[in-house]
Design a protein around this nucleic acid. Structure first.
Lengths: 241, 241
DNA sequence: ATATTATGACTGACTGGTCAGTCATCGTCA
DNA sequence: TGACGATGACTGACCAGTCAGTCATAATAT
């Protein structure tokens, strides 16, 4: 009774449902999502919001640990403490869930980047502050894994890559370029060409993120210390503190 | 072999549901039969090597395009022009295939990195040569995607991450650190702390790889030009050529 | 040299298990 | 009580891995 209806899309599957899962290690269970509720039974809207948050949290953990294709929604549901059908009350399908998660996770990051234009002192201090924030809020947290996830799945989710480029990368680099230009006019930076490649300023931060995901257990990396040396290269020798 | 006892567990071929395969998949046989001049019929060992190469090539393309979990071995087989069962004559299972592929793909990269210790001129020239090679051989080719693949799947394949760290990253950074130290003793580099973070030297190359995969279609990036500016920061202003 | 047999590379239909998405039913809150 | 959120058993597509059978080629016999 095998009905193998194979559509004759010879050249390209294009829009196919992703299945499968990778043989991989178990994810460490962090915490039972729904266990100790300090909250007394809330009203419906409140409960709904809590549930949604639990799902988002659980899905994030699973997607980070396994990637999109290998993540099972059964696991997400179990981790969130809901039934699988419940997921579909909050998200259209697996793909929508993934994309929405990635977008949502970036909102604080965007706020962080747009909250920098107040420069009271040397530009170097502003950039250093940016680096400290970045290391503390991203490299040392789960958000770093989200960046790795974007790098991983970006090519297969053009919508995500587009969104990320438009909302984060493009804006971030524009802001950084403005900072560099300001520093150049102030004489803090000598190399005028640096304005052409603001990527150079943030490159060590990206490397720190990747290092953290892949090699931290082999050789820990002090991302902030590294970044400060990097700033010495850009701004000239460090003014002693 | 005159036993024609047909085992009952096997059903007869019956009808072929779908046209077995696209005609193009049969090319190898046709080519050797009709166009004998290009490729004389090889012996078994030679044929086997060719087949293996075809499988490796096809698997690489599929894994790069879809990642490990979402890649179907049916597709790999089709692309390689062999039956699925044939894959298992050359590889134990999907996971072994993936790991072996990643390892193999890195061999030329390793050779490249260990083939640099002959420094005839300024250290900067050596590093710039390294960068040119890296951009030309990796960023602009499929090898860049392999690096992205390692970043993507590394956390789920600790064996790959370990191998890569041991054989490439560790050795590469050690070599780079030696270069930096040499440049410091020669006076080409002022910042002595750079020796503590050789990652800083190669960071723009990593960023170029990622950019190429994710954002090239939005905004092309001249990796080599960027790297040269980076070298200006490290070695001081560029000596005009 | 030609015929016969042996080898094993290759094939692809098939199995067993997985998992995204559905929906009839249940429970709970307003 | 009625409406709606929640459930989880269920469906069926999907796919890694298997293996009985085929056939080109090598080995051996005539």
């Amino acid at each position: 009774m095998t009905k193998r209806i194979k559509p004759s899309t010879r050249t390209k599957p294009a829009k196919r449902r992703t299945t499968i899962r990778a043989a991989a290690a178990r994810i460490p269970k962090v915490a039972s999502a729904k266990l100790a509720e300090a909250r007394p039974p809330a009203n419906r809207a409140e409960k709904s919001a809590e549930r949604r948050a639990a799902i988002v949290e659980a899905a994030m953990d699973e997607f980070i640990a396994r990637g999109f294709a290998a993540t099972r929604l059964d696991d997400v549901a179990k981790r969130a403490g809901v039934a699988k059908g419940t997921l579909y009350l909050y998200f259209k399908d697996k793909e929508s869930m993934f994309e929405e998660l990635i977008r949502t996770a970036l909102v604080p990051l965007i706020s962080r980047m747009t909250a920098l234009p107040t420069i009271t002192g040397p530009v170097r201090d502003a950039v250093e502050g940016f680096a400290e924030t970045f290391i503390r809020e991203i490299v040392s947290t789960r958000r770093g894994d989200i960046i790795r996830l974007i790098v991983s799945e970006g090519p297969r989710f053009p919508a995500i890559a587009d969104f990320y480029f438009r909302e984060v990368v493009s804006k971030g680099l524009t802001g950084m370029k403005a900072l560099v230009q300001l520093a150049i006019t102030r004489g803090e930076i000598k190399h005028r060409e640096l304005g052409d490649f603001p990527q150079l300023v943030v490159a060590p931060a990206i490397v720190a993120v990747i290092w953290q995901s892949l090699f931290a257990r082999h050789a820990p990396l002090d991302g902030l210390a590294m970044f400060k040396i990097h700033l010495d290269l850009i701004f000239g020798e460090r003014r002693q503190t």
